[in-house]
Write a protein that binds this DNA or RNA. Structure first.
Lengths: 346, 346
DNA sequence: TTGTATGCGTTATCAT
DNA sequence: ATGATAACGCATACAA
C-alpha cells in the first residue's frame, strides 16, 4: 500500500508528513506567512515540489470564504461589443491571478435566476454586471449579501456604475448629420436588454431628439424604429424606412451591427451610400473599421478593464471600509469614415 | 438576537431548525432523494422558501467532489472563430445547468500553467480544450488525475478529440481555384497556436499542396507564407505576395480574418477582386458572409456543442465505466461567394 | 422514513 | 516558530 501507486491528489497532510511538520506550518508556507523559519520553509517547499502538490481550491474557499474567482454576467457574450468589453475584463482579472466565470443571460428569466442565486451560492467573490439593470429589490439582496458588485454600461444609484455618455454620443452623431444638411434623419433603436427601468437605448434616443430639436427639426414618428440589436434588426428597420414615400437621407443606428443591416438594405434597394444615404452606427467594433463605417466609438476594452479593476478593489477592501458606490462616466466619440456626406439636393 | 437582523446566509442547519427536522433530511430533499415522506418534504420546501435558502456550492463541492462547473480553455476567446465555438459550448453547458469557467490562454506559459494546475485544483469537473495541443506528459497528468477532458479542434490519441477535416477543407478550396484555371496560387498560413506537435495549420498546408499536385502545379516558395491569424497578418502576407514580379492570381488564406487583410491589401494596391485576384478564406465567420467572401465553412457552433456534450457525458459517467477516447471528425465545406472567379487571361 | 455522526482539505485559533 | 484542533457547510453511511 505504498502511495506511489495511489494517484489520488496529495493533500496538505501528505505534504506535512513528508516534510515532518504539522499541517499548520504547511498552510503558513502556502500563505506566505512571515513567521516560519527559512529552514523549515525550504523543507516544506521541497515536499510540495516532490509531491507535485497544489492546494485544493474548493477546500480553501470553504474556510477562507474567498473563491479567487469573479463572476461576469452578460447578455449575448458573442456579440462584438460584449466580446470587446470581456476582453478588457479578462486582461484585468487574469492580471491579478483570479479566474472568471461567465454567466450568459440570454433571457430575462435566466438573468433573474442568476441575480437571485449568485449572492447566496458564494461561488464567486464578486459580480460584474454588463448592460443589465438590476431592480431595487435585487440590489437590496446584493447589498445584504455583501457581495461586491460593479455595473458596466448600466446604472444603479446604490452600486458602483460605469456608464458611457450615450446621450452625448448620440447627440454628436445626429448633430453632425444636421450640420451636413440632413433634415430627414431616421433612428434605429435597440430593444432593451432587460425589462428593467433605465436603458442605454433611452439615452441614445434622447440624444437623437435633442440634436434634432437644436437643429429645429420636427420628429417624424415613422423615422424612429426599435429593433433587435443585430444585423437583421437593422435591415428590417432600414427597409421599412427606406421604402416610405419620403425616405430619410440619413440614418443613425444604435449599434454598428444594425448599421451593417442598413448597408445591406441600401444595397438591396440600390441606394448609394453615402451619396444618397448617410449612415452612422454606434459602438466602434472592428467591423465598423473594416467596412469604413462612420460610428460613435465607445471605449469598450477600457470599460471592461476599469469595471474589473473597480470590482477587484471592492473585493479586496475589507468589508468595514468599503468605498461608497461611485458613478463613473466615460465619453464616446464620433468617428467619421466613409458612410457620411452632405445631404443630397432635392 | 433574533435572526431577522442577521443577514448572514442561511445554512442547511437553519432550514432544518425552521422545518423541525434534521439536517440529513433537508439534504435529502435538496438532492431529490426518493426516501422522504411528501409531508416532510413540503415542510422543508416551505422553510427553504421562507428563508430564501440556497445551498452553499463550495461546501457542497467539498463533500460531493463535484463542482458543477466545467472549464473551457481557449486562446484568444474574442476572435470570432472561438467566439462562435464558445457559443455552442455555452448553450450546451447551461442547458444541463452547469456553469462555465473561461481560461484564456494567450501565451504558451499561461497555457502550460493552466494545464499544470487545473487537474490538481479541482475547481472544475472537466476541461474542454479548444485549438490547443497538450503534449504527452500533460496528457498523462490529466489521465492520472482522472479529470475528464475533451479536445476541440485539436487531437491527441488518448483523449476524446473533435476535429474538422482541415486537409479536405483546404483541398476543396484550392482544387476549386485550379478548376477555375488558376496556376499561381498563394497560401497564407497561420502561426501555430501552441508550440506542441501537430496543428491544424499543417493540415491546411497539406491540403493546399495536394490540390496543387493533383493539378500538376509546382509549389513556389514565395507563395507560401506564415503569418498571424488576424487581419494584419493577412495584409502583411498579401502585400508581400502581391508585390512580387509575378504575383499570384488567387490566394487561399487559413482564416477569414487573414482574408479580410488580403481584401485590404488588394484595395490598397488597386487589384480588383475577383477579376484580377480570387480569394478564399477559412472558418466561415459572420464577417465572411457580410463581405461576401468565399470561404471554407467550419461547423463552429456545432463543434462547441458537440464537444461540450461529449465532455458532459464523460463527467457524468462514473469513472469505472468511462467510455474510451474517440476521435470525431466533422466536415468543412466550401462556400463560394463573390471573391472567386476564373483566372484572368494573361 | 428520519436522525446522528463522521469526514472532506483547508484556515485559523489556540497552546506550547 | 510550530503543533494540535476546532470550525467551515454539506453529504452520506449508519443507526434508530
Amino acid at each position: 500500500m505504498n502511495d506511489q501507486e495511489q494517484s489520488k491528489a496529495p493533500t496538505i497532510q501528505d505534504v506535512a508528513r513528508r516534510a515532518g511538520v504539522a499541517v499548520g506550518t504547511v498552510s503558513r508556507v502556502l500563505n506566505e506567512s512571515p513567521k516560519v523559519k527559512p529552514v523549515t520553509r525550504q523543507r516544506v517547499l521541497a515536499a510540495i515540489h516532490t509531491l507535485d502538490y497544489s492546494p485544493n481550491l474548493i477546500a480553501r474557499s470553504m474556510t477562507s470564504r474567498r473563491t479567487g474567482s469573479v463572476g461576469v454576467i452578460v447578455p449575448f457574450f458573442t456579440r462584438p461589443f460584449f466580446s470587446e468589453v470581456l476582453q478588457g475584463v479578462e486582461v484585468m482579472i487574469s492580471n491579478v491571478g483570479r479566474e472568471f466565470v461567465l454567466y450568459n443571460a440570454q433571457s430575462n428569466e435566466q438573468c433573474d435566476a442568476y441575480f437571485r442565486k449568485l449572492p447566496r451560492q458564494r461561488r464567486v467573490d464578486g459580480l460584474l454586471i454588463i448592460s443589465l439593470f438590476p431592480d431595487d429589490a435585487t440590489v437590496t439582496r446584493f447589498l445584504s449579501a455583501k457581495l461586491p458588485i460593479v455595473l458596466v454600461d448600466a446604472y444603479h444609484p446604490q452600486l458602483t456604475s460605469l456608464v458611457v455618455n450615450n446621450e452625448d454620443g448620440a447627440y454628436q452623431a445626429v448633430h453632425y448629420l444636421t450640420e451636413l444638411g440632413h433634415r430627414r434623419i431616421g433612428f434605429i433603436n435597440g430593444v432593451p436588454e432587460s425589462d428593467f427601468r433605465f436603458n442605454s437605448s433611452d439615452d441614445r434616443l434622447s440624444g437623437f431628439c435633442h440634436a434634432l430639436a437644436d437643429a429645429g427639426i420636427d420628429q417624424e414618428p415613422g423615422l424612429i424604429l426599435t429593433e433587435e440589436w443585430d444585423r437583421h434588426g437593422g435591415r428590417r428597420a432600414a427597409i421599412q424606412m427606406l421604402t416610405r414615400p419620403e425616405r430619410p437621407t440619413a440614418i443613425f443606428a444604435a449599434s454598428d451591427l444594425q448599421a451593417v443591416g442598413v448597408l445591406e438594405a441600401a444595397r438591396m434597394l440600390n441606394i448609394a451610400i453615402p451619396n444618397e444615404l448617410s449612415l452612422i452606427g454606434f459602438d466602434g467594433i472592428e467591423l465598423a473599421e473594416i467596412l469604413e463605417l462612420s460610428t460613435v466609438q465607445q471605449p469598450m476594452k477600457r470599460m471592461g478593464e476599469l469595471g474589473a479593476q473597480k470590482l477587484i478593489e471592492r473585493i479586496e477592501s475589507s468589508s468595514n471600509n468599503m468605498p461608497p458606490p461611485e458613478r463613473i462616466q466615460l465619453q464616446a466619440t464620433l468617428v467619421t469614415r466613409h458612410t457620411t456626406s452632405v445631404a443630397p439636393r432635392r
